[in-house]
Amino acid sequence: MPWLALILRSLPLMLRSLRNLRSIPAPAPAHGHAAKPAKPEKHPTPAHGHAAKPAKPAKPEKHPAHGHAAKPAKPAKPEKHPAHGHAAKPALVSGSGIFKDIKAPKTAWDNIASACQTGKKRGLESRAAPAGFIPVKMNKFDKYPDSIPVGLYTEGLITCFGIAIHGVASDQKPKANTRWLLHMVASSSSEWEEFEKAVKAEKLENMQGYMSLPKPAKIGAKVGPLIWSQADQDLATEIIEKMKTAVKTLTGKEPKFEMREMEPPTSMQIDGKGVVVAAGKTL
């Protein structure tokens, strides 16, 4: 067959070409080493030849015992308050001198004193004393004998006390001062102590005491610069009772007094004959 003869004739040529291809050396790898055949990719084989186990699914969140829903976190406990839930009471401070047995919050002592200061600005500085009267300033007292028939006058009384004494000169001291007037800051005992000592030194007879005293105000009412509190009222009440007793001890008689409003500020006077007027009322 013609095609078979053609293949046989070309067979020697094909064999020579194959021999030539096999004689060409392969390219040398870096550093002159023969290239190593690539290792077949290793596949992880589980221990002991077992198939790899699939990853375990994540465990569901544990719930409290008995399968109940988790309880919400407890809220923080509120701050503890004093016994019975009342607000803590302020520390009590003792007064001095004649008031040493009285205890009250420091704010109450300060409040009563500061209200007196307001009375001074609106009272004594606002107008002069009436004709025939000598003004008596806050924290001060004055006195006159029968031989000088002038009156004594003070005003701007809010929480302050007005205290007047009238007596008769004794044979021991015939020219004694028989009329006295004190404008006393309610929280200050030193003024009373000085006043009491001076009156005793006059050796008066048949003395009578007079007082202008602050009437209790409604809690929450405005008194001078203050909003009147229960602590203020409690302290004022104790001081009033203490001063009534002090005047009685000095004179030997129950004092005559006027309980007057703290607002507006009022006045007190004792005239040249010993007549006393407090907040417009003759005592």
Score class of each variant (00 low, 15 high):
Thr237Val: 05
Val275Thr: 13
Pro82Ile: 00
His66Arg: 13
His66Thr: 06
Ala26Leu: 15
Val93Cys: 10
Leu283Met: 14
Ile227Cys: 07
Thr282Cys: 01
Ala58Glu: 14
Cys160Met: 01
Pro46Trp: 12
Lys215Phe: 04
Asn111Tyr: 06
Pro72Lys: 07
Glu125Arg: 11
Pro265Gly: 03
Arg179Met: 01
Lys244Arg: 12
Asp171Val: 04
Pro29Asn: 03
Lys242Pro: 04
His68Pro: 11
Met243Cys: 04
Leu250Asp: 00
Ile239Phe: 06
Leu157His: 06
Ala131Arg: 02
Lys39Ser: 14
His68Leu: 12
Gly280Ser: 12
Leu15Asn: 03
Lys256Ser: 13
Lys200Phe: 09
Val185Asp: 02
Phe99Asp: 07
Ala65His: 13
Ala236Phe: 00
His84Lys: 07
Leu250Asn: 05
Ala164Val: 05
Leu92Cys: 07
Ala115Val: 00
Ala164Trp: 06
Trp109Asp: 08
Arg19Asn: 09
Leu124Ser: 08
Leu92Phe: 12
Ala217Ser: 12
Thr159Gly: 00
Gly162Ser: 06
Gly220Ile: 06
Ala186Val: 03
Ser189Gln: 01
Leu152Ile: 03
Lys71Ala: 13
Leu8Arg: 15
Lys39Gln: 14
Phe195Cys: 05
Ile227Val: 13
Thr266Lys: 09
Pro264Ala: 10
Gly156Arg: 10
Pro255Lys: 13
Ile158Val: 05
Lys100Gly: 02
Lys121Cys: 00
Ser170Glu: 03
Leu92Ser: 08
Ser96Lys: 05
Ser189Asn: 05
Ala198Val: 04
Ala113Arg: 03
Gly95Arg: 03
Arg127Tyr: 12
Val185Phe: 01
Lys281Thr: 11
Val276Cys: 11
Ala279Asn: 06
Met259Glu: 02
Ala279Val: 08
His31Ser: 14
Pro265Lys: 07
Pro40Ser: 14
His48Arg: 11
Thr118Ala: 09
Ser23Trp: 10
Lys53Ala: 11
His66Gly: 09
Asp110Arg: 10
Thr249Lys: 08
Gly132Leu: 02
Pro27Glu: 08
Glu238Met: 15
Ile7Ser: 13
Thr237Lys: 10
Ser96Asp: 08
Leu152Thr: 10
Thr45Val: 10
Glu241Arg: 04
Ser190His: 02
Ala91Val: 11
Lys53Thr: 15
Ala246Thr: 04
Gly119Arg: 02
Gln117His: 14
Glu61Gly: 01
Leu283Val: 01
Val136Arg: 02
Ala131Met: 11
Ala131Gly: 15
Trp192His: 03
Ala47Glu: 07
Leu11Ala: 11
Glu263Met: 14
Pro2Asn: 10
Lys56Cys: 15
Thr251Ser: 08
Ser267Thr: 01
Lys36His: 06
Ser10Phe: 14
Leu92Glu: 13
Pro90Lys: 07
Ser170Asp: 04
His81Ile: 01
Ser23Ile: 10
Thr118Gly: 11
His86Pro: 08
Ala58Pro: 15
